[in-house]
């Protein structure tokens, strides 16, 4: 085994660990694993400087399957553990792998604060709208009426929108992808990695055992074009067959409305151009839901100084001499 980074370009398979992957066959997690391994290879990541930190849940088994450093911690606390890793060594490239239960329920507080502090991490939230590892209870992102072992008559609670939450928490990078759309997912993850600060990526992930097809209404091939809006900075917000549909700002309602080019006098002039630095627009995009299009891609990216850079930029007072420390203030000699 060589102790230095190999000169040859790393391949995705170089980021696979020797551990047998234990997700259910067909689980969307496999696709996310594949996308991340490709990202690591493409960006030229080094195994020794990369760390995956996770909480508890199906998504949180992720670190065992990559050949980097990994820490499978306690339920919901991965953002806090990852913050500690960065405070110890800001040079490490740290990913947080979490799920809707782990990141938004038991760990919601930590998610809020890690985003607010803007700790330089890639946070990938696998949203399958269900508790998979505990066998299918409804989660904080489950839609109202979800029938599950703990909600046999349908869940009563209104769901949380992960992207809206991240924006509200002050996240400076908020993006979305779909597990099976490798191309766009890889791109979004690369953007997340390039952003210095807390990068929040929600991945719609199919749990085929307990919540199969929950995203079909916008992920199915037949409806994909009509129901998916892939946003791109500086490009008009168009979707649909032949990109004939778009989003126009209704100034009276302060909301985005779906319009069709050529109908009722709508022209390209009317279509909102995506500005990923515009937080208000990102908020409106995050809130879109079927039957309208679901916004995918980088909804928001507006970098500010990240937490550990700020921490270590603060001047350190004094000399580091312990004797000086112990003798500060009044002393006397016997």
């Amino acid at each position: 085994m060589t102790a230095t980074t190999a000169p040859v370009k790393m391949q995705p398979k170089d980021f696979a660990s020797d551990q047998e992957v234990r997700w259910c066959p067909g689980c969307g997690d496999y696709a996310i694993l594949k996308a991340v391994q490709k990202v690591l290879a493409d960006i030229g990541a080094s195994r020794e400087n990369t760390v995956f930190v996770s909480g508890i849940g199906c998504s949180s088994r992720f670190p065992y399957y990559v050949s980097t450093y990994g820490f499978h911690t306690v339920h919901g606390r991965a953002p806090a553990v990852a913050t500690g890793v960065k405070l110890a060594n800001p040079a490490l490239d740290v990913w947080v792998m979490t799920g809707d239960g782990d990141g938004l329920s038991i760990g919601g507080n930590h998610m809020l604060h890690v985003l607010r502090r803007n700790v330089d991490l890639q946070i990938v939230l696998f949203n399958n709208e269900i508790y998979g590892l505990t066998k299918g209870q409804y989660s904080p992102t489950s839609r109202q009426g979800t029938v599950s072992p703990t909600s046999p008559l349908g869940s009563l609670e209104r769901p949380l929108s992960a992207a809206t939450f991240a924006l509200g928490a002050g996240g400076r990078f908020v993006a979305r992808g779909i597990d099976t759309q490798q191309g766009p997912l890889v791109e979004v993850l690369k953007r997340a990695h390039a952003h210095r600060g807390a990068s929040f990526v929600e991945v719609f992930q199919n749990c085929l055992v307990f919540n199969d097809g929950v995203f079909d209404e916008f992920t199915e091939k037949a409806v994909a074009e009509e129901r998916q809006l892939h946003v791109e900075h500086g490009k008009p917000l168009l979707f649909g067959k032949n990109r004939q549909q778009g989003l126009r700002l209704d100034p009276a309602a302060l909301a985005l409305e779906v319009v069709t080019l050529g109908q009722d006098g709508v022209t390209m002039e009317d279509i909102v151009v995506h500005d990923e630095t515009n937080r208000a627009l990102a908020g409106m995009l995050a809130a879109l839901e079927p039957p309208g299009p679901v916004a995918l891609g980088v909804l928001y990216c507006a970098p500010v100084q990240d937490f550990t850079t700020a921490v270590f930029n603060q001047p350190a007072k004094g000399s580091g001499d312990i004797v000086a420390l112990l003798k500060q203030g009044k002393t006397w000699t016997v």
């Binding site: 760390v51 306690v74 953002p79 806090a80 913050t83 500690g84 890793v85 060594n89 604060h113």
Partner: peptide, 18 residues
């Protein structure tokens, strides 16, 4: 930290990182 749990978890993360 934001709470006691985050405090100990950050300390553990730091120890993991050396």
């Amino acid at each position: 930290a934001e709470d006691e749990i985050a405090a100990i978890c950050a300390a553990i993360g730091a120890s993991f990182a050396g």
